[in-house]
Design a binder for these strands. Structure first.
Lengths: 255, 255
DNA sequence: CGCAAGGTTGACTGCAGTCAATAACCGTGG
DNA sequence: CCACGGTTATTGACTGCAGTCAACCTTGCG
């Protein structure tokens, strides 16, 4: 839900909870937890990037997301992890027992609310991704991906954004529902259109954000919410679009 | 999280909460709430089917899901509804204030847990859908869709399943990231393969479930969980697949 | 430097989208 | 009850985007 201000006993925030724990670290290619393992722990990423993926029955890999510094993993699972979390870069993280976290949450509405927000954000991200995968062309997907990653680091105020994109082209492809070759070709198109440029394989610069956003099929963008967490979710704007729908659910564009 | 047994004061379940409220109803094409409206209410569907969708900047419609009897909508939003919920059939439902629900939840770990489960299930469903949209062919998508809808009604024990599929082909298409024509062609293929048959446009029979599941690219299927709510989520099985991944995240099928 | 992993580009193919014509269905009214 | 009209569904012909296969290039590490 939204906005719970209540506190019970001493307030304890999710981030604090984790920083009170020891820090572990792992290296590129190592997993923090595996798809199918009993989900006993939750994890907060202090530094680095992970890929989150499943292996499908046919052996394909589906990357369902990436995790970055500040993200908390492992909250919303049922009894088993539904994906593997594997380091892309060096990663520092802390672990906290799910059991204990659940118990603490049942005593602290504030914490409860924070956990709820984490899951609600994940859900928003997943639905955004559903739309990307269901509706967008390859170039729109790649543009969206670059934009989202750029905006995670800075706000949307600057004209130009420069950042690191540590995952491989294959990671991007498996995340965007494309092949590695199509990702490359789309990147090339974006380079040719002078919307982005690369220094090496993993250092990106986004020029002309507004154009890139339009190209990506995103709404507006410059709405620029508070510099709170990652919240590129809005999208649900007033929506004065010229359509109407008749009694049976068919959509008609009026013009 | 999972399995909270604790109770605080008098236990009150989510379903009960709603059944204590008046029942509203709406007709095909009418919306219960609209994308972008302030999210003040939560809703439990007692009967009927709704389509949940967004309108994208370019005017396209993306169906993010369907809601059925027993489902609860409107829990995980931020301050605004992120999609429109529109009746496909006649729908009976109850409304409950989000504000009040939040307050009750902060006092009842049991209710809190129920809400958490609802959102966690939504997240599971969304990630399942991400995989469908990112990895599956048109025929696999349609087969998955039929199977999922069939299994919602019955378990997976029967050899044959017969059920109503009230949404239009366009709804399915917008949900599966396909066109209406491709949905039709896929249905035709499935009919020709004798895996399904139709009586009229909305009455489906699934024959040979196991084959259909294999065709849909689903794992096993006959695992047959408890006849609890809808829980087709498992998928995270032991996974003894013959692969290994080297230090940089590239997957190698060993054979 | 040399090699291997990762990335890019090109040629070709095929699946799903588009446009268009036809058929089935359903509610309404004669 | 049947006939009619509008909506929804199906099929066909053709196109085009993204996938496949293959060659080549870059980069970074031992």
């Amino acid at each position: 839900m939204s906005f719970s201000v209540a506190t019970t006993g001493r307030m304890e925030s999710l981030a604090e909870l984790f920083t009170s724990r020891a820090t572990d670290s792992c290296h590129p290619g190592q997993a923090i937890f595996w798809e199918g393992d009993p989900a006993t722990g939750t994890f907060r990423i202090h530094e680095g990037v992970l890929r989150l993926y499943r292996i499908l029955p046919d052996g394909c890999r589906a990357v369902t997301g990436f995790a970055f510094a500040g993200d908390v993993l492992g909250i919303a699972f049922h009894d088993r992890y539904s994906y593997t979390a594997e380091a892309v870069t060096n990663v520092r993280y802390s672990r906290f027992s799910r059991e204990r976290l659940r118990k603490l949450a049942s005593e602290s509405p504030a914490l409860q609310h924070e956990l709820f927000e984490v899951v609600a954000d994940e859900l928003s991200a997943a639905q955004e991704q559903m739309i990307l995968l269901g509706q967008k062309s390859s170039e729109e997907r790649v543009a969206s991906f670059l934009l989202k990653n750029g905006l995670r680091v800075y706000g949307s105020d600057k004209k130009t954004i420069d950042f690191e994109l540590p995952m491989t082209r294959l990671d991007m492809a498996d995340y965007l529902g494309l092949t590695i070759e199509t990702v490359c070709r789309s990147l090339t198109k974006l380079k040719q259109a002078k919307l982005v440029s690369f220094r090496g394989r993993h250092r990106v610069t986004l020029h002309k954000l507004a154009e890139l956003a339009r190209f990506a099929g995103e709404e507006e963008l410059e709405i620029l919410r508070d510099p709170d967490h990652h919240d590129p979710v809005v999208r649900s704007e007033p929506m004065p679009l010229p359509f109407q729908n008749d009694k049976s659910g068919r959509m008609h564009l009026v013009i």
